[in-house]
């Protein structure tokens, strides 16, 4: 990748999903992707801004898009929820309804510059599964995940709403392709895009817990030794609300592990579920590599 890309971590990646941030940055660096965190970004508003009103749920993401335009044409957004919201906002503005134009003018006034509609919101799973990146990954593999059975879990925001989907909405494949490239065996299961209840995790914990237990049981029934996610809300919910001891990895952690990035040992220490059952099966161990 020749050009510099912008990087929007979002609130969770600075705190509860630190290992997602660290692993994503390490993988991008190892693959020679030139990226920079966009300066002084703000929260995208998540579901709360939507509840408070339409304008706020578009204005908060728009400020980030405008800042990102000064950094590069692609904006990498690892948090699936932030990704879906930022991407939907570009679509909303593209339609140029009277409401959208009025909102855009107001945010442009606040920032004192125009929105140029130049930025492409991109999820790192989309980036890493482009043919040239898959080839690069293949060429740099240091350890193999051979023999490890994984359930790829896409959740809601990589496939919904339609404008955010870079894969089939009901039967997505990109994470499966990536994990197979790392040597892992990807299990067949019917819960790839079922909601984990993260959105009501804090307010209706018992509902979220029963949704998580169902997902984890189904992954186990399919033979998986771990679930793989691309969303901080899913990951925290899946590891925090289950009683079955099934780890939930970020896909970037596993790419980093397979590329032999030695810092990966530290990422796995911050998991709420013990990951050693899976990590001991990694061929060549995790101590080798760079």
């Amino acid at each position: 990748m020749g050009e510099r890309l912008g990087y929007y971590p979002g609130c969770s990646l600075h705190t509860s999903a630190r290992e997602y941030d660290l692993s994503c940055r390490a993988v991008l660096k190892a693959l020679g992707v030139d990226y920079a965190e966009i300066p002084d970004w703000n929260c995208c508003g998540a579901s709360s801004a939507h509840g408070a009103g339409h304008a706020l749920s578009r204005a908060l993401p728009l400020r980030n898009l405008m800042i990102a335009e000064d950094v590069g044409e692609d904006l990498i957004v690892p948090c699936a929820a932030c990704y879906s919201i930022l991407r939907s906002t570009t679509g909303y503005l593209q339609e140029k309804s009277a409401e959208a134009r009025e909102l855009q003018a107001k945010v442009e006034q606040v920032l004192g510059k125009p929105y140029r509609e130049k930025v492409r919101v991109t999820h790192p799973l989309d980036l890493l599964t482009r043919p040239e990146m898959l080839n690069k990954i293949k060429g740099q593999l240091r350890t193999s995940l051979k023999g490890i059975k994984l359930a790829s879990y896409y959740g809601c925001f990589l496939v919904r709403p339609e404008i955010a989907a870079f894969d089939n909405q009901e039967q997505p494949q990109k994470m499966d392709i990536l994990l197979r490239e790392l040597g892992a065996e990807v299990v067949r299961w019917s819960y790839k895009t079922e909601c984990c209840g993260g959105g009501v995790g804090i307010t209706e914990g018992s509902v979220a817990s029963s949704l998580v237990e169902k997902l984890v049981s189904e992954a186990r029934k399919a033979g998986a030794e771990a679930v793989v996610t691309a969303c901080p809300l899913c990951q925290a919910n899946l590891e925090g609300r289950q009683t079955q001891g099934l780890p939930a990895f970020y896909f970037t952690e596993l790419v980093g592990l397979a590329l032999g990035i030695s810092a990966s040992k530290r990422w796995f220490k911050s998991h709420l579920v013990d990951t050693t059952s899976v990590l001991t099966k990694v061929q060549g161990g995790i101590s080798g590599g760079r």
Binding site: S47, H50, C156, V159, R160, P161, E162, Q169, E170, T193, C195, G197, G198, G199, V200, T203, E204, V207
Partner: peptide, 12 residues
């Protein structure tokens, strides 16, 4: 009405 997780499966 307060239980909706916002997963958007219905609209999809």
């Amino acid at each position: 009405i307060w239980y909706c997780t916002g997963c958007m499966t219905c609209q999809a």
